[in-house]
């Protein structure tokens, strides 16, 4: 499903869990089909910004809109797929990959049963992420990378237009990380908007088209190649990581 206008839009957003703002005066627009990454050092407010974009938090001031609606009142949940850090989903719960992917259909079916066409969507999502062979395997028996693929499949099963990932490769082995980002690029090529919150600057500079750099306030917002050459990188992260710019 596509609509006119930006996927997400923040206008002068300020938010704090206490009286001290965690993010301040943030304005940005995520357009359809973009592959954007939010970066920043620990405590910079990037996960909070993501939660504001998703409508999980309401701004103290300013406005956050998702698909044109106030984000905290946005109710077309199936349009947004969310993938958390794999560490947060590592519960020892007996559940198969297919059961996880099936959850993507829940916003569509409500209290009802999945129809044959719903199951087709689930199977197709499993196929897209290369997890069909693992469909009946318990999630607890998967590697970190496989598990994150299963969560992406859940978002695809929901037929999401926007895929939001919060540090998805934490705890994922290096080999799987490359394959994971290749998958994200493929999905983005297919028209899905990808918004990534990432601590791994090299992954961002290698894959994302746009970087939003944050340290409470917006430090940079523009194409990745400009970020690599900008002062924002060194100013926000210190000189130690400027090597990313040279190699990236």
């Amino acid at each position: 499903m596509t609509t006119e206008g930006p996927v997400a839009e923040l206008d002068d957003v300020t938010f704090g869990y206490t009286t001290t703002p965690v993010v301040e005066d943030i304005s940005l627009r995520i357009e359809q089909g973009e592959y954007a990454a939010i970066v920043g050092p620990n405590g910079s407010g990037k996960s909070t910004l993501m939660r504001l974009i998703l409508g999980l938090l309401e701004p103290d001031s300013g406005s956050a809109r998702l698909f044109g609606e106030p984000a905290h009142r946005f109710d077309e949940g199936s349009r947004v797929g969310y993938v958390a850090q794999q560490a947060s989903a590592s519960k020892e719960m007996p559940i198969t990959v297919r059961e996880v992917v099936k959850m993507g259909r829940f916003p569509h079916v409500g209290y009802g049963l999945l129809s044959a066409s719903d199951w087709e969507v689930v199977d197709r999502a499993l196929d897209v992420v290369g997890m069909s062979a693992f469909a009946d395997r318990p999630v607890t028996q998967l590697s970190g990378g496989q598990r994150q693929r299963a969560f992406i499949a859940r978002a695809l099963a929901g037929e999401a237009d926007l895929l939001v990932l919060d540090e998805p490769t934490v705890g994922v082995d290096a080999e799987s990380v490359d394959a994971f980002y290749a998958l994200l690029e493929t999905l983005n090529d297919d028209g899905i908007t990808v918004l990534l919150v990432e601590h791994d600057l090299r992954a961002v500079t290698d894959h994302a088209e746009r970087v939003v750099c944050l340290n409470r306030r917006l430090r940079f917002d523009g194409p990745t190649e400009e970020f690599v050459d900008s002062d924002a990188l060194a100013e926000t992260f210190g000189t130690a990581v400027s090597a990313v710019g040279e190699s990236g």
């Binding site: 947060s88 209290y111 939001v164």
Partner: peptide, 21 residues
């Protein structure tokens, strides 16, 4: 009646909230 929603909330509360549950 609510098995789908209870499962989603149990397995991944944040994703369930994002999904509009």
């Amino acid at each position: 009646l609510t098995r789908n929603q209870l499962l989603y909330v149990t397995f991944d509360e944040t994703a369930a909230e994002v999904a509009g549950i």
